[in-house]
Design a protein around this nucleic acid. Sequence first.
DNA 1: TATTGTTATACTCTATAACTATA
DNA 2: TATAGTTATAGAGTATAACAATA
Lengths: 164, 164
Amino acid sequence: MTQTLQEIQEHPVNYVPKELLASPGFLLAKMGVAMKTRALEEFEEAGYEAYHYGVLALLDESARGTQAAIADALAVDRSQLVGILDSLEERKLIERHRDQTDRRRQTVTLTAEGRKQLVRLRGIVRGIEDEFLAPLDAKSREALHDLLLQLACFHDPRCGAGAA
Amino acid sequence: MTQTLQEIQEHPVNYVPKELLASPGFLLAKMGVAMKTRALEEFEEAGYEAYHYGVLALLDESARGTQAAIADALAVDRSQLVGILDSLEERKLIERHRDQTDRRRQTVTLTAEGRKQLVRLRGIVRGIEDEFLAPLDAKSREALHDLLLQLACFHDPRCGAGAA
DNA sequence: TATTGTTATACTCTATAACTATA
DNA sequence: TATAGTTATAGAGTATAACAATA
């Protein structure tokens, strides 16, 4: 949609309905989707996908995991994870090894290069957040984080258990 | 994805990476998308689309509007709005009338039935929010709302101007 | 020629189903 | 028979492009 100058002049009262702005649920959805969209763009610009960061961050904490466990932790379908891992393996950021006790399973581990790129991705993530949360000072960001974490723990038990 | 009992037993440490949980941006995206998904489901269950509510709420505030103005206010593409309005018109919740001074334009207005259904939809919206924001008390919800509104106004000027 | 509303098309993201090799 | 990973397919949701009527 390309908005011309004339359009802007003819429709100056181009406001978002107050009723929607008064709804925390609407704003949460709106801002959450905007945050996600922004993140996807930034990652793509850097040559990555957002899920790459999730996988690397997870492996950095747990050292190794089966694909099923990784998929569950990140709440992506196992079939979706395949492509993500393929892409990470091509770049030599992770390695897949057959589990010798159960040859159906692959054990996924982080490479040295993967650890290095994770640091780079952390920088990108910080940049995205700083830009998106720009109007909020440190205290406000922490307040927002607290509230969102309460919601996350309530709706997804895996947040509380692992983070405790 | 069907998770069997055996899987749950074999992968008990099915936690979300702490690094992600520590990120307000990640949580905002995660919860925002969850909120949106939940809302879409609830609306569908009630026989509506989420955008129906947006259109009705907007028309209730501004009485009438061209399709272009409505699309811009709700940040949907004009081509997408067509289907939404078709659906609302079929149910006789809105009416489209050709603008006689510029026959390219359609003026969209709310019907009495539309006003009635808007009340019903407001109830649904309240239900969705109450369920999703359940762990937060009134004060916390207001704090969340304030923070999100700051973000919305920063990223989308139409929020501040119209709401002031 | 440009714009409104409309229709048609393509693309992203995700969810589901089917396949293989192992158990 | 059931599971781990994989591949193939289908479905939302949205963005882009082309169109007819009107200005």
